[in-house]
Amino acid sequence: MSKERIWHGGDLDKARRLFPEAPEPWIDLSTGINPIPYPLPDLPPHLFERLPSPRAQMDLEVVAAEAYGAVDAATVMAAPGTQVLINLLPVLWPRSQVAVLAPTYAEHAHAWRMARHQVTEAASLEQAENADIVVLVNPNNPDGRVLKRCMLLGLSERLRQRGGWLVIDEAFADFESDESLVPHLPENAVILRSFGKTYGLAGLRLGFAIAASETVMRLRRILGPWAVSGPAIAVGKQALLDRDWRDAAQQARDADARRLDALLGPVSDQVPRGTTLYRLIESRHASDLFAHLGRRGIWVRRFEYNPRILRLGLPGSEAAWTRLGEAIAAFRNAKESE
């Protein structure tokens, strides 16, 4: 059983330990969460005082089905965040050969290993598709790679013909070009969608599994009653119905991503890539840049498997943009004078 520790973004306690002299407040760019959150509505007290009703969750799932393009609301299940679903999915199958398309979000391989499946981390779909279960993230985290829908439909069909399954994490799909498999859901696929990243409300803990209704029923039995809180149901329903907000947020974050690329391009050895909500750079000076930003109270994401890459989320204010721009300019000047 794996005992690996997985590092995630958002750990400002770790940032303060590494850079105790850094100025406060920290600018946390280590996650891929929308820095401009959906405005929370006024919530009635009864949402906190009573258990959520099954009808309320069903209404949320109907709204989510429409928002994500699912053909049937019976194929959509709300959960307290996609991380819970990542940990639950390996329980649905007996021990199997599982291929995770990597490098990617490390919790996927970890969850299947913890459930005692035999896991390989494959560098390509060709290496992965002989497994019983193929797991991939689309768009991928952290590099933003997008696999075309036609490729995934072909893969799911080849897996189906021999009893295999496809698991797709679409956590960052909302603001990206539409290659989602949700509107074309294969019977042997499970698709995960995240609410908190797009709407900037990660602490609300809300996510969705989209799969054949029989698979959804199995997941419901494992998850148990009242898994999603009343406040999460209410906020999630209102936000998913607010298409005007989402369209405006997508346009604004697209502009922010282009602005961030313009800042990062001069310190990257390659053109920045990623998704709308985060950008990835590759540089021979990545370790120096990580430390330079950390000393200035700017926390970004580094990766142990590749010390040449850094991932940066979007700043959430003009003050944060200014601090980041000044820090990058100082880094460039220091490198040019060496």
Rank of each mutant, 00 (worst) to 15 (best):
162 R>A: 05
138 N>L: 01
94 P>S: 13
75 T>E: 13
125 L>M: 11
150 C>N: 15
154 G>D: 14
216 V>F: 05
142 P>W: 04
31 T>E: 10
250 Q>F: 05
216 V>Y: 04
15 A>I: 01
187 E>H: 10
106 A>C: 03
26 W>M: 11
147 L>H: 15
67 A>V: 00
282 E>R: 09
162 R>M: 06
54 P>K: 07
111 A>S: 15
59 D>W: 01
100 V>L: 09
90 P>K: 03
233 I>Y: 06
143 D>W: 01
46 H>T: 06
319 A>G: 14
153 L>V: 07
260 L>E: 02
308 R>A: 13
270 Q>V: 14
246 R>I: 11
133 I>M: 04
110 H>D: 14
152 L>I: 06
229 S>R: 09
185 L>G: 03
144 G>F: 02
263 L>D: 05
223 L>Q: 14
46 H>N: 09
110 H>F: 09
176 E>L: 06
21 E>T: 15
125 L>A: 09
94 P>I: 01
143 D>F: 04
36 I>L: 14
99 A>D: 00
147 L>K: 07
140 N>G: 10
288 D>T: 12
133 I>G: 03
333 N>P: 00
98 V>E: 00
41 P>N: 02
200 G>R: 00
316 G>H: 11
223 L>Y: 01
227 A>T: 07
130 N>W: 09
324 L>G: 07
221 R>Q: 15
242 D>I: 07
289 L>C: 04
212 A>H: 15
49 E>Q: 15
133 I>H: 02
190 V>K: 01
284 R>L: 05
117 H>L: 05
174 D>K: 02
183 P>I: 01
298 I>C: 07
177 S>K: 13
300 V>T: 11
169 D>F: 02
183 P>Q: 08
236 G>Q: 07
242 D>L: 08
276 T>I: 11
61 E>C: 07
143 D>G: 07
11 D>T: 02
88 L>Y: 11
198 T>E: 10
140 N>Y: 00
108 H>Q: 04
215 T>W: 06
270 Q>S: 13
262 A>P: 13
138 N>E: 11
61 E>I: 14
100 V>S: 03
25 P>C: 07
183 P>Y: 12
52 P>C: 02
131 A>P: 03
264 L>N: 04
35 P>N: 13
69 G>F: 06
209 A>Y: 00
79 A>R: 04
43 L>E: 01
40 L>Y: 05
297 G>H: 04
327 A>M: 10
169 D>K: 05
205 R>V: 01
179 E>M: 03
38 Y>K: 04
195 F>D: 14
166 L>S: 10
299 W>H: 12
39 P>Q: 12
164 G>T: 12
68 Y>F: 15
23 P>F: 01
205 R>N: 14
78 A>E: 00
70 A>D: 03
